[in-house]
């Protein structure tokens, strides 16, 4: 049951970090807090046996994402004082979502329930076939590369698309140089 207690504390830290992110106005502090946030997430994933996810979260979420944010924030002015608009509608929305979701998740299988449907259907085949066909011990790798390899291709394309989009936005002539395309932008 140790994992439950560790899980409890890590999740609590996560929630606390979220609260601080909400409260903080300095952009660079927010970025730092986001880094902490993702690292705590990675720790939670390790605790929940998702080591591959934890590794990715640490590398991509905490590493690359933080670097990107720092680079962006470096070019931007300091954040202004918290200006919260739409407060009332968003409180109503939040509270109603919380109530609805609480009712629904009460119906979901509890954490770690070995008889949950997801542990009975489809997945057992993966584990069995991993032993017999692939001879690669990491089942996640097997699924990622083979069973759901097409998703992984899609994932690569997502990165490519985003990269291309960033290049277009940051370096393209259409948006950045003082060519005839730039003139028309109304100042």
């Amino acid at each position: 049951m140790n994992f439950l207690i560790i899980n409890f504390f890590l999740i609590s830290i996560l929630l606390l970090t979220t609260f601080y992110i909400f409260k903080t106005t300095s952009l660079i502090s927010i970025v730092a807090l986001t880094g902490i946030f993702t690292l705590v997430c990675a720790a939670i994933y390790v605790n929940l046996d998702a080591v591959d996810v934890a590794f990715t979260e640490a590398a991509v979420g905490s590493g690359i994402s933080t670097i990107l944010m720092v680079m962006a924030v470096a070019k931007l002015p300091e954040g202004k004082k918290n200006q919260l608009l739409n407060l009332f509608p968003s409180i109503v929305l939040s509270v109603s979502i919380v109530i609805v979701l609480m009712l629904i998740i009460a119906n979901l299988p509890l954490l770690g329930d070995p008889n949950a449907p997801i542990h009975l259907h489809v997945t057992p085949e993966y584990i069995k076939e991993s032993k017999s066909i692939f001879h690669i011990p990491n089942v996640v790798t097997n699924i990622l590369a083979s069973y759901r390899g097409f998703d992984t291709l899609g994932e690569t394309i997502v990165i490519f698309t985003a990269g291309l989009g960033v290049i277009v936005l940051l370096t393209s002539n259409t948006l950045n140089r003082k060519t005839k395309f730039k003139k028309k932008v109304k100042k």
């Binding site: 990715t56 979260e57 991509v60 979420g61 993966y126 996640v140 998703d151 994932e155 990165i159 990269g163």
Partner: peptide, 18 residues
């Protein structure tokens, strides 16, 4: 533990960062 959600989340993390 079930590996399939892990795979899905690996994809989703990358998508989120993108």
């Amino acid at each position: 533990s079930n590996p399939l959600p892990h795979v899905l989340i690996l994809t989703a993390i990358v998508v989120g960062v993108a």
